[in-house]
Amino acid sequence: MSAHSHAHDDHHGDGGAGHGTFNSYMIGFILSVILTAIPFWLVMDGVLDSKIATALWIMGLGVVQIIVHMVYFLHMNTKSEGGWNMLALIFTLVIVAIAIAGSMWVMYHLNTNMMPDMDHDMIKSFG
């Protein structure tokens, strides 16, 4: 994808993007299988005692697998499309992170402050 138009003289049609090789697809596939199997195994067999540790492993392996898919299947790199692919991706990630983290943060506080068993004096003190 990075060396489009010049290095690939054999196929200079539209869109010189997304050229993987058999090996790169297989590497991506095998990594994906491993990265999928581990979190399922952790949950289905209850391998770890700590739920928080299991949850962190699931999220961590998920992030790694997303990167694997981006690199080996979507052929992402910092140079593709002159860097605009990466820029659009980073922008999207920032927006999504703000939306998810912001929603959870705000709604968590809302839930906390709306608890029915909240101390009555405390409610008064707000007002």
């Binding site: 489009h4 869109g15 499309e81 605009w84 692919n85 659009a88 922008f91 927006i95 939306a99």
Partner: peptide
């Protein structure tokens, strides 16, 4: 040569926003 691919990538990013929400 690559305008369509970049445009489609940006569509996918906008789709990511939907899924993000």
């Amino acid at each position: 040569e690559t305008g369509t691919m970049l445009g489609f990538w940006i569509y996918l990013m906008s789709d990511s926003l939907i899924f993000g929400i």
